[in-house]
Write a protein that binds this DNA or RNA. Structure first.
Length: 428
DNA sequence: CTATAACTCTCAA
DNA sequence: CTAACGTTGAGAGTTATAG
């Protein structure tokens, strides 16, 4: 039988910020989305105050003042670096590990059945806490879905668990009782919509869903939810994916710090986003054969004229050349642009991605060294940017100071990845 | 008509 | 001081279109 462990950090972003601001230890802390828009992470104290996930920060001003809530802009460099450290520690506990997200990893515990898994889970928590400084919980079960659920129990201290929950140790009766108390919406894969539909059918608890007829679930819902039902019954349908497959599409989009009216500024933003997307594309040795550009006005201002155009274009040849991709993206953006709208967001997407170098050469081009030179140039740019920081070398189409740049007024220093940020720390 | 492409919906972190 | 509401990706299912 398969055994999965799921390690999940508690309030990950908020915990990262607290780690470097000990004076905030018992204070409510939230971390905001890009552009300092919405709350995307809350410390335990912030949750206790009833701060909802996803709430726009500007709506919380009053409450924030009252309770002294401290808000941070998201500092992805810091979180990514701490995440890597957590994974390094986790690898000591299992050779087979899937990094599922920035704060979650599945561990294969196949063959660990003879040891005290709960004790093992406690060791994992303690070592991550001691070596990295971040709290987390461990869930253990015979399928990924059950490991997820166990992790939920661990976080909520259900079934007598305290940070670690091993469902394999529970009797059938105990599982019935436990699953009867958990809402069906807590199950991995059951979102808002499916939750509502299940409830209409009288399936309200995890236990109800576990005991539902898989064939019926498949007809009324989908093969995906059928798998979930089987997984809840301890039949592992989702395997550990140790190596992340290459992306099939690569996207880069941002909301603007302030509305943009001029084509020039839009082109500037589109160039910047496409450069990022192209870097990611080269990061997986890929080439794209199609690209999409979209623009958006602010949907939260229904009184203003709305315009959400997008266009996909096929590329004549597969490429990962920033210059080529930016040119196309700007051409498309120019086509989409209409004067008089207040644009709030733009984005680009690369698709039809294939491994570099496999493409059929064009019938009419004589084979040339142009492609090879472009590849060398791009590798050089990537190397320089890796060494000196993103944007150290870039196309002239990406200007330096952007009126549209996203707001990040509350960012903490990049304590672990940037020497340049340290003086501001020492100065305090 | 079928096969494929394009689009929509849902979910997750 | 103002005004202020995320990003990225996958997969399945449905609808539109081409041949």
């Amino acid at each position: 039988m398969a055994i999965f462990g799921l390690f999940d950090n508690n309030n990950f972003y908020a915990s990262c910020e607290k780690l470097f601001a000990p004076r905030l230890k018992d204070r409510p802390v939230v971390v905001l989305s890009n552009n300092d828009g919405c709350v995307v992470a809350r410390s335990a104290e912030a949750k206790a105050l009833g701060i909802p996930m996803g709430e726009p920060w500007f709506k919380l001003q009053e409450q924030a003042r009252q309770h002294g809530i401290v808000a941070f802009s998201s500092n992805y460099e810091l979180y990514a670096d701490l995440s890597d450290r957590v994974v390094q520690v986790l690898r000591q506990f299992s050779p087979n590990l899937e990094v599922y997200s920035i704060d979650e990893s599945f561990l294969s515990l196949d063959g660990f059945g003879h040891i005290d898994l709960e004790e093992y889970g406690r060791q994992i928590r303690e070592r991550v806490l001691q070596w990295v400084g971040l709290p987390g919980c461990v869930g253990i079960g015979p399928s990924k879905t059950l490991a997820k659920l166990a992790n939920h129990c661990a976080k909520k201290s259900l079934a007598g668990s305290d940070g670690v929950c091993n469902l394999l140790a529970l009797s059938a009766g105990e599982l019935d009782e436990l699953f009867g108390r958990i809402e069906v919406g807590e199950v991995w894969g059951v979102g808002r919509k499916i939750d509502a539909r299940l409830r209409e059918m009288g399936i309200a608890s995890v236990r109800d869903l576990r005991d539902a007829d898989p064939a019926m679930i498949r007809t009324r819902f989908s093969v995906v939810l059928e798998r979930t039902v089987r997984e809840l019954n301890g039949v592992s349908c989702l395997s550990l994916e140790e190596v992340a497959p290459d992306k099939q599409q690569i996207m880069c989009s941002r909301s603007f710090g302030e509305p943009v009216y001029e084509l020039d500024d839009l082109l500037d933003a589109v160039a910047t986003y496409m450069s990022r997307a192209a870097e990611k594309l080269r990061g997986q040795q890929g080439e794209a054969t199609a690209l999409m550009v979209f623009l958006q006005t602010n949907p939260f201002k229904p009184d203003e004229p709305q315009y959400h155009p997008s266009m996909t274009v096929p590329l004549p040849d597969p490429t990962a050349d920033t210059r080529v991709l930016v040119q196309w993206a700007q051409r498309v953006a120019t086509r989409l642009y209409r004067r008089g709208y207040a644009y709030k967001k733009a984005g680009v997407m690369l698709s039809c991605i294939q491994p570099a170098g496999v493409s059929q050469g064009s019938l009419f081009d004589s084979p040339s060294s142009t492609d090879a030179k472009a590849g060398t140039l791009m590798a050089l740019m990537d190397g320089i940017n890796q060494k000196w920081g993103r944007g150290a070398i870039r196309l002239a189409a990406e200007r330096r100071h952007h009126p549209w740049q996203m707001r990040r007024d509350r960012m903490s220093p990049r304590y672990t990845t940037s020497w340049a940020d340290l003086p501001s720390v020492l100065a305090k």
